[in-house]
Structure formats: C-alpha cells, structure tokens
Amino acid sequence: MLQEQFSTGNSQIHRLDPRFKVVVATVYAFVVALSNRFPALIAALIFSFALVGLCRLDFLEVAKRIALVNGFIIFLWLVVPLTFAGQPLFYLGPFGVSSEGVLVSARITLKSNAILLAFIALIASSTVATLGSALSRLRIPEKIIYLLLLNYRYIFVMEEEYRRLLRSASIRGFRPTSNLHTYKTYAYLIGMLFVRASDRAERVYKAMLCRGFAGRFYSLHEFSFSRLDLIWLVVMTIAIIGLEILEWVKIA
C-alpha cells in the first residue's frame, strides 16, 4: 500500500513551498537527463544524495526504492554492452563487449539514480494531495491533476476488489497453472475489474454531482513563498549552474 511515508517530516526541504519543489525538481531532472559527461553526472549523484540526507528520511526505505529501479538497470547492463556498436573492450565467448555500450549503461545508471533521489527528496516529501494543489497553482490542466488524485484515491479500492475476486476464485479451487483455463480465468477477472471500475466511476461521479459539482474543482490550499524558499532557490540555482559548468567547460 502507498504509505506516503516520506511526506511526514519537518526538515527544511519538507517545509519548502511545494510549487517551488515541483518546478525545481523538473528543471533539475532535465539538466541531469541531458548531461553526458561523467564529472557532471557524478556531481549530480552526490548532490542528490545530499538532498535526501537533508530530508532526514529513513535510509532503509530509500534504499528499497533505489534497489527497485536498479533492478531494471541490471537488465540494461546485461543487454546494452553486448549489443551496442563500437570498439570491443573484451570478449565474452563469441560476444564482444563494447566500451561505448559500457559507457552508455554507466551514464544511464548515474542519471536515473540522481533523478530518482532528487525526486524522493523534493517530490515525495509532499503528500499527493499537496502536490495536486501545487500543480493546479502551476496552471497544469485540471484534468491531468484529477487523473492523478483520483488514481491515488481509488487504486486501493480497485486493488481490494481484485483481491476479492481472486479470493473467490481460489476458494472455489482455482490454482493458476499455465493452461487455457488459467488464462481464461485471469481474463475474466480483469474484465470484471474493468466493469466494476466503470461502475464505481459512475457512482463517484453521481456522488460528486449531489454535492454541487459543476465541472470545476476548487482548492483549499494556500501556499506562500517564504525566506526559506528564497534561500533554496539560490542553492538549487547554484547547483544547476555548477552541473552545467561541469558539463560544458573542459577541465584540463
């Protein structure tokens, strides 16, 4: 279950204006994603680590999230060096491991970890509800925001319904194997889930109509840009400029 466990805390980063955090995290993510040189990428990773450190989050939980992403990256390391065109670094049996492939994989690893850590620090330190309001203040289209918020609200309800269906199948002796009966059963389960989701959506919409919903959402949150935000604006600007210098200026 989504616990939003990083959103509780009282560090400086937690207290920043969420609108500012959303903007700065986005800019930072672009800068890191578009960098290519190792000094810049390594510096970004260190800086992101520092941000997470300043959030004073549970280290084990952060490690779990990172491990999840790096699980995918392992596959990248298994495939890209063997298939990327370029100078072979060494041979693994009949396969040549290209040095370009290794460099590309290393870049992707550094970039994704740096961006993920920065998002944990800057974005996961607010609740989904707060982020929704922040996005609406940033003039992101309301439909997108409510897609996010309603997803967050109903994903558990749908999960619960899925479990209920699965339970009812298993108490009637359903054991998944790899045969047509299993595939058919899963197809029915998923089909039923869609039917229920659309019924649910209709009921939620009706309930909203009954409370005077007329197509527009209003937000309760009022944000203020404080002195702390100003300080952090300076910190983040310097960090981003620093990364750009490392990326573009050749150090002898």
């Binding site: 609740t127 989904v128 509800a129 929704g132 918020l149 309603l150 967050y152 609200r153 109903y154 309800v157 649910r200 009921r203 939620v204 009706k206 309930a207 909203m208 409370r211 005077g212 919903f213 007329a214 209003y218 309760l220």
Partner: peptide, 21 residues
C-alpha cells in the same frame, strides 16, 4: 457505499468539496 462519496485524498478536502462548490 462511503467509498463512492469520499474521493478526495484527505478528510478536510473531502468535506470542503461541497462548500467550495
């Protein structure tokens, strides 16, 4: 089903939905 009625992330926002409308 109360789950149909409560669609906002927090109780505060959910109860405020009607008055805001």
């Amino acid at each position: 089903d109360a789950d149909d009625q409560l669609f906002c992330p927090t109780v505060l926002e959910d109860i405020a939905f009607g008055p805001l409308n």
